[in-house]
């Protein structure tokens, strides 16, 4: 049995079709990532998995239970952390954690070990006695995450858990997710950090209410068949304008201190020669990252929907 099974799920808001008849499954114990542009419908999808909204069409089964008929049973199975999780601002860090541990009836011995691990990741140990309202934005987010992770549900659903979390803590947070997964929990997580998508067993790229791609990160990368180059230049903005004017360029984007350009077919030496005259310093063929694939597929989709 699948942990999650989604069949022909559709959701409309007025004229807008937020989810357009999608279909997918999540295996028990899987760490399943969802990426997609803002407004793609990720939150709608995650809320539907938690029974917080019902499909207009189609069905969602959680451990075989239909979200239409088994709301109470499903909520027993699922732990959900919404995008804006509300902490008790007047309670201290410690009181918030204890509150949620009590709410989820976490046994005492388990609680101690988990709290220790969560304090290590969140670095909130020295601030146990501080009111949640006086924490920095990212510290609040880490406290909210810790409250959500204090128990171990069968299925854990996290909507952008690392919003505003710093790079070091993000790494440690993913270590904890892996730990929770090893205890048998199925995890569905959405994120705006593409390097996090790489840490999932499978990733779904969700765009305008449709699934654009769904596979293991390594498979998504292996399937990408367009030549992709990393380019260094004296003046990146000018180089970007130059490549944007060429035909046969699929997408061009800045990545840190370089440009990534993908071509419909392998460019010839003459292209590189002319680019050198325009200030190109170095170029090398590279393997795509999830971020490249995201940029490529979403850019394509938009062009195609404009052309239609």
């Amino acid at each position: 049995m699948y942990a999650i099974k989604v069949r022909q799920f559709r959701k409309r808001y007025g004229d807008l079709e937020a989810v357009r008849g999608i279909q997918f499954e999540v295996e028990p114990g899987e760490l399943f990532g969802i990426i997609g542009p803002d407004g793609a419908g990720k939150t709608t999808l995650l809320r539907a998995l938690c029974t917080l909204l019902l499909p207009d069409d189609g069905e969602i089964l959680i451990n075989g239970l239909n979200t239409r008929h088994h709301v109470a049973d499903i909520r027993q199975i699922i732990g959900y952390m919404p995008q804006r999780f509300s902490l008790y601002q007047d309670l201290t860090v410690e009181q918030n954690l204890n509150f949620f541990a009590d709410l989820f009836q976490v046994p005492e011995d388990e609680r101690r070990a988990r709290l220790e691990q969560l304090y290590r990741f969140s670095r909130l140990g020295p601030f146990k006695k501080r009111a949640a309202g006086a924490l920095s934005g990212g510290m609040k987010q880490k406290l909210a995450l810790s409250c959500a992770l204090i128990h171990t549900p069968d299925i854990l659903i996290l909507d952008e858990p690392t919003f505003g979390v710093d790079p070091v803590s993000r790494q440690e947070f993913w270590d904890i997710l892996r730990d929770i997964q090893r205890q048998g929990t199925t995890i569905v997580v959405s994120t705006a950090y593409m390097e996090e998508a790489d840490l999932c067993d499978r990733v779904m790229l969700f765009h305008q209410g449709r699934i654009l791609a769904l596979d293991q990160p390594s498979a998504l990368k292996a399937q990408y068949r367009f030549p992709l180059y990393r380019i260094e230049a004296d003046h990146l903005p000018e180089m970007q304008t130059y490549f944007a004017g060429l035909s046969g360029v699929r997408f061009i984007q800045r990545f840190g201190d370089s440009l990534h350009v993908s071509f419909t077919r392998e460019p010839g030496d003459d292209l590189w020669q002319t680019a050198r005259d325009q200030g190109l310093q170095r170029f090398e063929r590279i393997a795509p990252s999830i971020e490249d694939i995201f940029m490529d597929l979403t850019t394509r989709e938009e062009h195609e929907s404009v052309e239609h």
Binding site: I35, G36, P37, D38, Q83, G137, E160, F163, G164, A192, M194, P237, Q253, R254, E291, F294, M295, T298, T299
Partner: peptide, 20 residues
């Protein structure tokens, strides 16, 4: 202050063009 937190890769880049 964190103008791009939670924003997708494409929207982040176009926001940076705006910053420039």
């Amino acid at each position: 202050d964190e103008p791009t937190s939670g924003v997708d890769p494409k929207a982040r880049r176009s926001f940076w063009n705006l910053i420039y």
